[in-house]
Design a protein around this nucleic acid. Structure first.
Lengths: 146, 146
DNA sequence: TATTGTTATACTCTATAACTATA
DNA sequence: TATAGTTATAGAGTATAACAATA
């Protein structure tokens, strides 16, 4: 780890070989590129929009479990996306539930989002070969499999 | 991605092959294990303690740059670690700076921390071979190199 | 009784802008 | 003028606990 300003080297000590530390640095780098190049919506919110696109009518609770948020947290998140006109709640067959759907503007937004995410992904992976990227995705999935 | 409660499969859609998505899931898994098994201090704070241990007398600003936090954010972080009696500020040769040092209890705390982190690391990497773990660390470093 | 969405509330982590003391 | 630490303030993002409607 280099001190970004003075280039004083800072000893990493016990930190050097820890997966959690390397994961955090990598994720910071990727998220920083996402914010700069995709913008408009955070990585987490973008992921939710992609999940609603792939699972039209998904209930709030089901989406919350998928992204590991509390149901109560999801309320505000959906409120915000609904206020931006990107998704809408519809009454489900089970009248306790609310199904989530992309609005027409929401679908256009997600289409644009996907194009930007594509070029973001290419830029982020530009230092990796195709094989290395596949290896990395596989190892990450293995690590996350609990 | 499985819905954790009902086992309804949720389609991942465009999310499936994104490095940022896989990074986030992997990091969540690792941090959850850290919280459950190391506890007492968050991964980020633990990292700072390890950096102070490896760089006695490091200034607040230098540490802030190393972990990519604002100087102003670092103030409160150090306040909290100081209030817990783990580190102390000492006046530097340049009298604008404050050097950071582990206290005696802080050194004991970090020693215990390192033992817990070791077993945490082994558990997290338990699904990976030694070679796979090395590959993963290397690929993550490559990804984070901007 | 159990589940879904909701509200009220609070906590953690972080940033920006303006200040002070030194350099 | 520039830098290190500081303060005040604000904004994401998240959680817990209690509640109403529905199953």
């Amino acid at each position: 780890m280099l001190d970004a300003k003075t280039n004083d080297p800072l000893e990493l000590g016990a930190l050097a070989g820890l997966l959690g530390y390397r994961l955090r640095l990598a994720q910071q780098a990727v998220f920083r590129d996402f914010a700069a190049s995709v913008g408009e919506v955070s990585p987490g919110r973008a992921g939710m929009l992609l999940l609603v696109e792939a699972n039209p009518g998904v209930t709030q609770g089901s989406l919350a479990r998928a992204v590991r948020l509390e149901r109560s947290t999801m309320v505000g998140v959906i409120d915000a996306l609904e206020a931006r006109g990107l998704i809408e709640r519809r009454r489900g067959a089970d009248r306790r539930t609310k199904g989530l759907w992309l609005t027409r503007p929401g679908r256009a937004f997600v289409a644009r989002l996907k194009r930007r995410i594509d070029s973001h992904e290419r830029r982020v992976a530009s230092h990796l070969s195709v094989l290395e990227r596949e290896q990395l995705l596989g190892l990450l999935a293995k690590l996350a499999a609990r």
